[in-house]
Design a protein around this nucleic acid. Structure first.
Lengths: 177, 177
DNA sequence: CAAATTGTGTACCATTTGGTACAAATGACA
DNA sequence: TGTCATTTGTACCAAATGGTACACAATTTG
């Protein structure tokens, strides 16, 4: 017997690999080893609720491990290290970015936008604390987000982590405090 | 009566909006106004062949309007302008990037990788011509691709073109010949 | 230990999916 | 004009889809 919380990381991995539409209920059943009964017991709203829970889980992780540290004295270098680990050095896809591009987007638009906005706010706070002017900090935050997202997309597309890794390297140089 | 070539841009727009899995045959028939008979007449391989044709069409456009000019004396600024127009200033999604992230990826992995590799080659050629050392040119090419892709993803996610537009602006500054 | 609660598997459902068959309409062309 | 190939709509199909119903097993809890 399992509980809902244990399932969420598994579901996250499944959606990461197959997308929202691509991950059929039949496949989710097979991969988790749970029947529909259990699945719909934990997530009465079906696939949509599963994906929602996964997004929430991701948001919480970033909130604790990335955003808050960034706002409370952590360094950018530290953040980039955590990000690098989280995305397996470019081998793991950003589920939020993926949902943002596909048809799933409308369904989760609010959570998707909130995730990136929150990240941006934390980055701006960090850069201002480093002595940058607000406009400069804003531009820097966008640059950092864009470089991470783009690196992940291209690393996936070319099946090579170099895009992601080199992006992180440049960010370290350009924004070292 | 229509012909195959006219259909491809329509299909491209449909896939862009709904993704590969999300664009059902029923919807494609409705949107194009063509029955399955016509669709399967032009694309006997079904949806997969439609998407393949769309990717090929996109590749050809970039080859002629982006890659070749870049290798034959065009400026980076010129390329960035074309790219900006093509992606509607950040309002249009990169279909190749989208396919790269979703489950569709395996099916079209070769075309997806080739598209970005080709772009990278053209950029390296341009930067070397500008007097950069090969390693520097390579790093610059990756940076440019990453910034464009990331900008598109984030602009879509936040429903705001600023990520894409500011990325382009930075590229203009950092790589002006 | 009994009773309520929670978790689980299976059988089932209507709907939608991508795809096929084929006859009728349309066009090019001699 | 008559022939032939292409184009088109419709009716069909098996398989897969997300979802529900429900009986049974495992827990908690009084």
């Amino acid at each position: 017997m399992r509980e809902r919380a244990d399932l969420i990381p598994e579901l996250a991995e499944i959606f990461r690999e197959y997308g929202f539409e691509g991950a059929s209920l039949a496949f989710i059943t097979e991969r988790t080893g749970l029947g529909k009964g259990s699945l719909y017991n934990f997530f009465p709203g079906g696939k949509a609720e599963m994906a929602g829970a996964v997004l929430e889980h991701i948001s919480r992780w970033f909130e604790e491990d990335i955003f808050v540290p960034l706002e409370q004295g952590g360094s950018l270098s530290e953040m980039l290290s955590h990000v690098k680990t989280y995305f397996a050095g470019g081998g793991r896809v950003c589920l939020v970015g993926m949902f943002a591009l596909t048809e799933t987007r409308d369904q989760f638009a609010v959570q998707i936008a909130a995730y990136f906005e929150r990240w941006e706010v934390a980055l701006v706070a960090y850069l201002v604390r480093q002595g940058k002017h607000p406009a400069e900090a804003q531009a820097g935050a966008l640059d950092i987000l864009v470089t991470i997202q783009g690196g992940l997309t291209l690393s996936r597309a070319r099946n090579s982590p170099q895009y992601f890794l080199q992006g992180l390297k440049r960010l370290r140089q350009d924004y070292q405090g």
